[in-house]
Design a protein around this nucleic acid. Structure first.
Length: 346
DNA sequence: ACAATTTGACCATG
DNA sequence: CATGGTCAAATTGT
C-alpha cells in the first residue's frame, strides 16, 4: 500500500521533471521567435515546475537504491539525477544567464512571424512605444532595407531607446526587430489598458501612396501584412492580464487614401475614439474578441500557445480582419464592427 | 506652423 | 575603403 503511494509520488515526480524539461525546450524554441514576455512566462512556468519538484523531494522518504535516474525516454542527458547538477538546473541557469546577458547588453532582438507572405514590408511593428524613423539603409547582402527608429521622446525626455527593423531574407514573413537601450521616457511603462494605444504602421509610405497607384496596392498589402503581424505579436500578450486580452488595431495616421476618402477612415468610421483623433482603429466582432479572450485563461504550455495562434489565425480569416480581402474589395461592412471602447465600458 | 518621414551626406569602425 | 549607423535638410502631411 505504502509502496503504491510511493510509486505514485515517484511517477508524479517524474512527470513534473518531464514537464519542466518540455517547458525548457519550448522556451528554447521561443527565445528566437517570440517576445520577452513569452520567455518570462515560460521561465516562470519552469521555475514553478521545478519548485514543485523540489517540494516533493523534501517530503520524499527514501530514494536511496530506487531509480535515482529519471529519463523520460527522450533524455539525451543521461546524467539526469536528483542532484543540483541535474539538467533541469542547467536549463534554469542557462536561461537566467541568457536574460542577464541580454539585459546587461540592453540590446535584444525579437522576431515576428507573419501569418502571410503577401505584400511588401518596410516598416515597424507596434510595440506600444512611439518611435520616429530617422534613417533607412540598404544592407549589404540583404534583400530588404533596414529601418532605424528612435524614441519619439528622445529630445523631450532624453530617452535613448532605439530599434532597427528589418525583414528577414530567409523568411520574408519574419520581421527582425533589434532593440537597443531601454526606454527612460514616461511611456516606459505603457498602459495597455489605455486601449486603443497608438499603433504605428510605419511601413506605409505616404509619399508612394500619393504618387503611385501601383504602390498603393503594395501599401495596402503592407497594411494587411503589418496588421497580421500585430496579431501574431499580440498573441504573446494574451497571457498577462485581462487588460491584455484584446489586440488593438489602429493606425497612427490615415495613410491609405482612396479617391475620395481614405479606406481606413472609411473602414474605421464610427468607432474612432475621441481621445485619439489621429488614430483610427479596427473593431473586432464579439466572436473574434471572444475567440481571443478564451485563449487567455488557459495558457499553460506551448500547445496552448499554439491554440492561441490558431485562434488568432481564425481571426484573420474573419471578414473584419482579413485586410487582404477587405482592402482590395473595399466593401467594408461596419456591421461586423463595434466600438471597443463601449465594449470595455460595459 | 508644426510634426513626421525621406534620403543623401557624413562619421565611426574594422 | 566598405559598411552600418546617424544626422539633418528637404519634403510631405496635418
Amino acid at each position: 500500500m505504502e509502496k503504491t503511494t510511493s510509486k505514485r509520488k515517484h511517477v508524479s515526480l517524474i512527470n513534473e521533471l518531464i514537464q519542466g524539461k518540455e517547458l525548457a525546450k519550448q522556451l528554447s524554441n521561443h527565445i528566437v521567435l517570440c517576445s520577452n514576455e513569452t520567455n518570462e512566462f515560460l521561465i516562470d512556468k519552469i521555475i514553478s515546475t521545478y519548485q514543485k519538484t523540489l517540494t516533493m523531494l523534501d517530503h520524499w522518504p527514501n530514494l536511496e537504491g530506487e531509480n535515482k535516474t529519471i529519463d523520460d525516454g527522450n533524455n539525451r542527458d543521461s546524467h539526469c539525477s536528483f542532484t543540483n547538477e541535474s539538467p533541469k538546473s542547467e536549463v534554469i541557469i542557462k536561461n537566467k544567464a541568457l536574460f542577464k546577458k541580454r539585459k546587461s547588453m540592453d540590446t535584444w532582438k525579437e522576431q515576428v512571424k507573419f501569418g502571410t507572405n503577401t505584400g511588401l514590408f518596410e516598416g515597424s511593428l507596434d510595440d506600444e512605444y512611439s518611435w520616429r524613423k530617422y534613417g533607412q539603409k540598404d544592407i549589404l547582402g540583404a534583400k530588404f532595407s533596414r529601418g532605424y527608429y528612435r524614441c519619439t521622446h528622445r529630445n523631450g525626455q532624453g530617452c535613448l531607446a532605439t530599434k532597427q527593423v528589418q525583414r528577414s531574407d530567409e523568411d520574408p514573413t519574419i520581421i527582425e526587430v533589434t532593440y537597443k537601450g531601454r526606454h527612460t521616457c514616461s511611456q516606459s511603462k505603457p498602459l495597455k489598458k489605455d486601449f486603443p494605444s497608438k499603433l504605428n504602421i510605419i511601413g506605409l509610405d505616404k509619399n508612394k501612396l500619393h504618387n503611385d497607384k501601383k504602390n498603393q496596392l503594395q501599401q495596402t498589402q503592407e497594411a494587411s501584412f503589418t496588421l497580421k503581424a500585430e496579431l501574431d505579436v499580440k498573441r504573446m500578450d494574451l497571457e498577462e492580464t485581462k487588460e491584455d486580452i484584446f489586440p488593438w488595431f489602429c493606425f497612427s495616421s490615415p495613410s491609405i487614401e482612396s479617391e475620395n476618402e481614405t479606406m481606413m477612415e472609411s473602414f474605421c468610421h464610427g468607432f474612432i475614439p475621441p481621445e485619439t483623433s489621429e488614430a483610427s482603429f479596427f473593431g473586432l466582432s464579439e466572436y473574434q474578441l471572444g475567440c481571443i479572450g478564451l485563449c487567455q485563461n488557459v495558457q499553460t504550455s506551448e500547445s496552448d500557445i499554439t491554440e492561441t495562434v490558431s485562434a488568432t489565425t481564425s481571426v484573420t480569416n474573419s471578414p473584419i480582419l482579413d485586410l487582404d480581402i477587405l482592402l482590395h474589395r473595399g466593401d467594408f461592412d461596419t456591421d461586423f464592427s463595434f466600438n471597443i471602447s463601449e465594449y470595455f465600458s460595459s
